[in-house]
Every structure is written in C-alpha cells, then in structure tokens.
Design a protein around this nucleic acid. Sequence first.
DNA 1: ATTTCGGAAAATTTCGAGATTCTCGTGGAA
DNA 2: TTCCACGAGAATCTCGAAATTTTCCGAAAT
Lengths: 213, 213
Amino acid sequence: MMQNKDIFETLRHRLMTCGFEHGQKMRAEHLRQEFYCSASTIREVLFRLSTLGLVEFREQRGFRVPEKSRAVLNQLTHLRVLLEAEGTVLSIRFGGVAWEARLTAAHHQLSHLETRLQSANETAPFVDLWFDAERHFHETLISACQSDTLRETHHQLYCRFRQQLMVEDRAFDFISDNIQHHQEILDAAMAGDEALTRQKVHDHLARHMTPTV
Amino acid sequence: MMQNKDIFETLRHRLMTCGFEHGQKMRAEHLRQEFYCSASTIREVLFRLSTLGLVEFREQRGFRVPEKSRAVLNQLTHLRVLLEAEGTVLSIRFGGVAWEARLTAAHHQLSHLETRLQSANETAPFVDLWFDAERHFHETLISACQSDTLRETHHQLYCRFRQQLMVEDRAFDFISDNIQHHQEILDAAMAGDEALTRQKVHDHLARHMTPTV
DNA sequence: ATTTCGGAAAATTTCGAGATTCTCGTGGAA
DNA sequence: TTCCACGAGAATCTCGAAATTTTCCGAAAT
C-alpha cells in the first residue's frame, strides 16, 4: 500500500523533474484518484511540499506549481552561491579526511556519469541518475559545515532551483563546462583554498545569473 | 468568528513570544477546544507553522515546539548575518531615497521605544511593541534588496531565531548596547559604506554567537 | 465591444466519526 | 534489579460527506 511518505516523495520527484507544468494547479481531487486516498491526505502532502517551496498555497485558491521566472531563478542562484560557498568553506575547516573522502567519492560518481553523458546519443536514460548525482555532490560539499540549519535552508533553495530549471537542463549541452567546473571546485576544496573555493562555486552557478528581460 | 488565518497568526505570535514551553507538544485536541474548530483545521494550521520552522512535525508523533538549543541559535545567527548583511548591501545599491526614508522612520520608531524602555521600571507593557519594532527595523534593512526569495528566507530564519530567544530577551539588560548597534547600522547604511555595514550587522548579532557548551 | 450580473458547476475547506498507531504503567520473567 | 511483554488509554491519521467559496459561462445592460 502507498504510504503517506511515498506520495510525498513521488510528487516531490515529479515536481523537481518534469512531471508538472509551471503554473499548473494541483487539484486534490485528481491526485486523490491517482493515489487512492482521501482529499485530506493529499492536502496534507501538499502542505508539506509547500514547506520546500515546490508548490504554492493560497487561501481558498488551492495549490499550484510556481511559475517559471527568470528573476526567481536569479535570486535562488544568488542565495545558493551565498550558502554553498559558506558551507563549503566551513566543511574545509571542520570536515577532515572523512569529508574529503566522501567528496571525492561523490565527485567520481558524478564525473563518471557526465563523461558517459557527453558521448551518449540518447540522454534520457541518464537524466534521473544525473540529477541525483549532481544533487549528491553539492550536498556533500556542505555536508561537514556543522550547521543543520544551513543544510536545510540550502536543501530548500536547491529544490526550488532545480524546479525552475525543470525543462531547459534536459539537453545537456552544458555538460562539458560542468565537468570542468566540478573538477575545479573539488580541486580548490581539497587544496583547502577558501577564497578560490568560493570563487569556483560562484563561477559554476554564474550561467544561471542572467539579466532580467 | 475566528478565521483560519487568525488561528495561524495567534499561534505564530504565541510561539515567537512566550506562549509555549520549548519542547512542548502541540496537542491538536487541546487547541481544538480553545479555537472551537475541528482537529483537521488545527492540523492544517500546524503544518503551515512548520513551514516557518516554528513547530516540528514527525510522522505519527504529532507536532511539538522545537527544543531550545545553543547550537541552533548559533546557526540561525550565522545565517542571519549572512543574509541580512547581503540584503542590506543590496538595498544600499538599489533602495534609493525611498528606502532611506523608510529605514530612518523604522529606526526612529525603534530607538524611541528603546529609550523609553531603558528608563522604565516595568518592561512588560513594552515587550510586544519592541518585538514588532525590532522586527520591522531589520526587515526594512533588507526591504529594497529586490529579492523576494532572500526576504522570505530571512523571515523564516528570523522567526526561528526569535523563538529560540523567547525567554531570555525579556529582561532587556542588553538594551543600551542595542541602541548603539542600531544607530551604527543606520549610519553605515546611510553613508553607503558596504563593508562597514556588513561589519556592523555582524557586530550587532555577535552576542548570540556563543561557544557551544 | 465591454462590463455586470446571475447561477450552475467545480473546487476548496471543515467536520466528526472511526481506524490506526503510539504512550506509558503494570506485571511477570530472567 | 533490569528487561521485556502486554494492554488500556490517549493521541494521531484517514476518510467521505457536508458546508463554504471560487470559478466559469452565458445573458442582459451599458
């Protein structure tokens, strides 16, 4: 039987990949039929998703997927740089060998996947794998910062960021730059160079900071 | 009649001031009786409060007020400094005269209140007013940063920060330092000195960054 | 052509009862 | 004494129906 938590995870994944249109309404009645449960259960799950900012709630107007917005993507990117740079620097200070090992592992997995992606004709079978690996790498970067609050806040921003990019990142024409970027972040972090690490985190995300139309 | 939103606001205020014990369970059944509504309505409000981090939800375990924790307060302070400094600097760049006017007004209101607080025997009648004025000043600082995302994220952190301080700030023995701090932040911001502003925001919050026991 | 006004249809929200799960004190066994 | 099992009571969670509110659409008025 489908647990409450499974519904949450299913919808979260769908919202962060390509499962819904931007701006679409999340009708409790429809979802109820898909998951064989009552409207209240769906309602509860939607409230929990709104905790992550993946759906928006308005009194008496129900839930909907946030609109795609260049401005919001810029803002999310800005904050990601701020928190991810800070978190990575703290991890450099506190993480020790264990963190370095985890980071190397996460990077190896990601770069392996990205290399294969680069030469593949068909990207579809890699999409989900890549999303997971990329997320895991960035979460590992800040994983030793000793601040759950920072990690939770970053996670929230990351979810919304990924959601904003739902559509456009599926072509993977950015992939060779990305391989380079991830490598440079890893190198800077392993060298313990805090300023350079901040710079590389910033550069990696810079392509998402575009002027508002 | 008590609207859904009123229940939310009432509980939010109570959670941020002194209405509940840290770690206390939020029993839907009890609250239901106070607000004359069904348990589901309370449940919904509690989910919305958990969006702000003012209550914690655990599957099958209900909702409870977060524990008071020195470590969490440090983390929240750290992030507040990060976001508030960034937001203020952006406001300096984008805010213009309108923002300067709003900030001056907010500061005047706050400092008026703090001066009276300083000489009062009985702080109780000022507590709620001060909380509001202090919050308004800090929100005004970042109000022109042109990033709703930053403001929302900051608001969330501010709520949790205030909640962690529920008890101890009621003596107001810090008040004369605070007057000085707020003045220095205002001066630095009005002078357009970005580095100094960052510094002053940091100094103001530094008293909450204490070593973990 | 645009706006305004019903009123029907659809969606959201509330409710209380019943099902499920957890909590905690009691008693028995190691 | 310490640990585990058990069960009564209390809390959480789910459900479907009813109440409320919004949305939609066509007709009438400006």
